[in-house]
Design a protein around this nucleic acid. Sequence first.
DNA 1: ATTTTGTACGATACGATGTATGTCCAGCGC
DNA 2: GCGCTGGACATACATCGTATCGTACAAAAT
Lengths: 273, 273
Amino acid sequence: MAKDRGAKDRGATRGTADPARSLALLWRTREPSAREGRTELSVARIATAAIEIADTEGIAALTMRRVSEVLGVGTMSPYTYVPGKSELLDLMIDTVYGELPAEAPDEGDWRVRLERVAMDNWDLYRAHPWLAAVESSRPVLGPNLLAKYERELGALLDSGLGDVDLDSVLTLVLGHVRASARAAADIAALESETGMTDQQWWQAHSPWLAGFATAGATPNADRVGTAAGEAHGAAYDPEHALRFGLRRLLDGISVMVEQQRAGVLGDERAASG
Amino acid sequence: MAKDRGAKDRGATRGTADPARSLALLWRTREPSAREGRTELSVARIATAAIEIADTEGIAALTMRRVSEVLGVGTMSPYTYVPGKSELLDLMIDTVYGELPAEAPDEGDWRVRLERVAMDNWDLYRAHPWLAAVESSRPVLGPNLLAKYERELGALLDSGLGDVDLDSVLTLVLGHVRASARAAADIAALESETGMTDQQWWQAHSPWLAGFATAGATPNADRVGTAAGEAHGAAYDPEHALRFGLRRLLDGISVMVEQQRAGVLGDERAASG
DNA sequence: ATTTTGTACGATACGATGTATGTCCAGCGC
DNA sequence: GCGCTGGACATACATCGTATCGTACAAAAT
């Protein structure tokens, strides 16, 4: 009974488990059931149901019991096809990557293409808000993630950057998109949980705050906070944060690309490591 | 028994709960126990213990039972001082903000100062890796967060940017630092859980991957992935990602600052909203 | 046609977790 | 002395992931 647990369970919202099993799952090593008995379930059906739940009810509602319920089977039945919840998350992730455009953007220069790549990712996050919260820093390299990486690198080849910088640039931009998407998903989740808009929330609590804080002690915060709040209609506007940050990033990357072309840039990593 | 749960519990690792209670907690509305009976516990002692646990054992190990155990009291005793786990997280967050430097950086121009602000935040995340994972998009404005915001804005005043852009710039840079810190904490957690370095992990699983993937189908990914892995000694190097991204961001922000000074920049938000 | 076998599926149960609830007890004012 | 108040705690419950083991049925073997 309950043999060597202890390191398990905690992977609840963490998309990474035994990678060999996840890899086998993602690349569909398992033959589609040699004996062909009664096969109500399948890896694909389970993944689809799980994605549906996470999309519509939020990642917190994604429990194995709920998945089973949606599929109309017993609680433990999905475990025949999927080793555990972590592997299921890995599977969900690689599955939705498959919804990205199949071709690398080919119009414009690297800057136009990179912006396009960023917005494609943004759109995917909007379609599957749980994705940003669940991606791991040690991703399981499924077929669709591999294809995604290949495609996105392809969009940057004409920048003239070296391979290492190529990876750094892509990681940086996609990291920004992911962070914005995470924030957006957080806000949406909070709004549906609390039944209050961000704006309503701040309005409801600023009187409290005013009561506690010493008046005039934080002039910059008061002034800038108010200005930002009014400009965005909220304390934080994810869509604005995305575009604002993307513009600064692309400008900053342009500086690097031009330095590189002018031969000015030595080996930058030597100075930063 | 267990009346209207359902919207509770899920706040497990989410640092936001009933904000009025959190605010009252953070600003210490509650008098320090008028009756002075046997007072073993206090809000401060609970917060300190919780931070200690999260620092040394990871945020996943932070349970109410563990907190009570460390304090040497019964499981439910902390609830006398703290309404719930979410509020405790809010309290922990504002408490560690208090460890940041008390004064705004005053050497150099805005760029030097902003970089300093970024690195101060980075250092805080290194000291408390759980922080990056727990900060909410709807933060509870405790005294230390308010002071932090005031101080960080002060470092940027000489940039000549307008109030709204000031907030956007700060949010952008701190978001990058936080994302890097989150990634670093993720990696560290994975390494201690799995007992494997990122590098070891990739080396152990690249044979698997090679077996699945079609050889030669993804040349860019293969080449760039290998190059990046060798350059950083891992698939992802958080410290490098932090510095690389910070440089691009500061370059990009410089472009904006100079455009602003030259009067070139109209109202950017009109075009992006 | 009958037996065997392997696998899909499910019922039950366990440990972990947040926290509601009711109780006990120490110290205070009277 | 006596009741009151507020701090501390033991117990219990719902929910979650999942280990374990039993059942039923289709394909294979006879």
